[in-house]
Amino acid sequence: MAEIPAALLLLADARLPAGGHAHSGGLEPAVAAHAVTDLADLRDFLHGRLATTGLTGAALAAAACAYAAAYAPDADIPPSGDGSAGGRRGWRGLDAEADARTPSPAQRRASRAQGRSLARAARATWSHPGLDALAAEVRAPHHPLVLGAAAAAAGGTPRQAAAVAAYGAAAGPASAAVRLLGLDPLDVHRVLADLAARMDEVADEAAAAAAGGWDALPAPSAPLLDLLAEAHVRAGLRLFES
């Protein structure tokens, strides 16, 4: 794997001011449902999220990174897209692929809210034609698209974009678990470290898939996360947006 550009670390850092702290990735409703009550539950939950939403997001991020990187500086013609027979579909095409992989309206809203915030943070941080084109074409893009484009802006590869996405898919809910359950943060970090190999597998699969057409990107679903996401937006008590 290529050396990690330091700029990419900014993107993986939880302190990145991009709104992530207010999203629990379904952990809050899972806690409310007593489905996650302790460290073992959390480990299982994170494993499941990584394998589903995490993989889907990582694949979209990898595809977005590759697409953004293809925007040559000074080129006023956008790159041809995913290389599939469908030809040029642009950022809207990839955004539609994210929509098609997110059946829950609550999850689509959460993804777009985070994408919008990340786009603001990324564009304030880096200047990159792929990132600018994404912001121009899609008002509030899905989060993985912005993550991928920002990774390209930071000099990262699609595989690295996928790794950042996979890490975020687990680290976000893990941090929410510390706040919601009062778990020992050291224990929670050990769980994340134990999952690191899985994150790499997910990033490998995501990056490999992103080398092909957008149509065929992975789309593993998590029926319970969909149910919980919808239950959450109807709940009276919500500390997190999602």
Binding site: D44, R49, G86, P103, S221
Partner: peptide, 22 residues
């Protein structure tokens, strides 16, 4: 040419039940 739904269900590695299928 617009994708409406791409939806995959993977069963079998025994992990992640709390997020996926309970």
């Amino acid at each position: 040419r617009t994708p409406l739904l791409r939806h995959e269900l993977r069963v079998g590695d025994g992990h992640g039940a709390r997020a996926v299928l309970g």
